[in-house]
Amino acid sequence: MELKVSTRSHAGNVVVAVAGEIDLYTAPRLQAEFTRLLGDGPSRVVIDMSGVDFCDSTGMNVLLSALKRLKERGGALEVAAPRPAVRKILQVTGLDSVFVVHETVPEELLISESQG
């Protein structure tokens, strides 16, 4: 299954919308996007996981790696709108206490770039 990743920025904040399955085969695509993104130095990255059907340990490791790199620079990585299957993985692994998890994408990040 293909993984779709799209990003949008607003005032130093980035929303990364992910759709599909994050697994051993698709995780490198997400990793590459984070590497590109983190080069721009955003202070806050929110991952919109409302379109993610499945995420395995490889995907979680990509998220943890990005979180670590952002924290080293005083930034934050947050997870938004995880579906029940992804939320369960976060809870079982204890990562729901590592990441800030939002029910939906925070409203202040829904403003489009053109209005900025």
Rank of each mutant, 00 (worst) to 15 (best):
R36T: 12
S97L: 08
S57R: 04
G94K: 00
K71P: 08
R36H: 04
E72D: 15
G59C: 07
A17C: 10
Q91L: 06
E103H: 04
T93L: 05
D96R: 01
V5H: 06
S9L: 09
R87M: 14
V5T: 11
S112D: 15
F34L: 02
T104H: 14
G94I: 05
G116I: 08
T58S: 14
L63W: 03
V5K: 05
R36K: 10
V62E: 08
L77R: 10
G116M: 05
A76W: 01
D48M: 05
A27Q: 11
K71Q: 15
A76R: 15
T58N: 08
L77G: 12
V52I: 09
A81S: 09
D53Q: 13
A32C: 03
R73H: 09
V92I: 15
I89C: 08
S6G: 14
S97M: 07
F34E: 00
E108M: 05
L24Y: 06
T58W: 03
E103I: 01
R69Q: 13
G41K: 12
K4V: 10
K88W: 02
T7L: 15
I111R: 15
R87G: 07
R87I: 09
H10G: 10
G41Q: 04
V14H: 09
L24H: 10
L3Y: 01
P106H: 02
S57E: 12
V45G: 00
I47S: 11
Q91N: 11
E107I: 13
D40L: 08
G20E: 00
N61T: 12
L37S: 01
R69A: 14
V105S: 06
I47R: 00
K68N: 13
Q115A: 14
G59T: 07
E113A: 15
H10E: 06
L37N: 00
L30P: 09
E78C: 00
S112T: 13
G74Q: 01
R69Y: 11
M49R: 04
I22L: 06
S9C: 01
E107P: 07
L3A: 02
N61I: 09
E72S: 14
V46G: 02
G39I: 08
A19D: 12
V18L: 03
L77T: 10
A76G: 07
A32R: 14
Q31H: 12
V101R: 08
V15F: 07
R29S: 13
K71V: 15
S43F: 13
L30S: 03
A85S: 13
Q115D: 15
A11Y: 00
H102I: 01
D23V: 02
R69C: 01
P84E: 12
T35P: 02
V45A: 00
R36N: 10
D23E: 13
L95A: 15
P82A: 07
M49E: 03
M49F: 14
L67F: 09
V92P: 03
I111F: 07
S57W: 08
I111H: 07
V86L: 04
F34R: 00
I89R: 04
R73W: 02
V86N: 02
M1V: 11
K88N: 05
L90G: 00
E33D: 09
P84C: 02
A32K: 13
R29L: 10
L30C: 02
N61C: 06
I22H: 00
G41S: 04
R83Q: 15
P84G: 01
K68D: 12
A32F: 06
E107V: 14
G41V: 06
E2I: 03
A27V: 04
L37E: 09
R8D: 09
C55K: 01
V15T: 05
E78F: 00
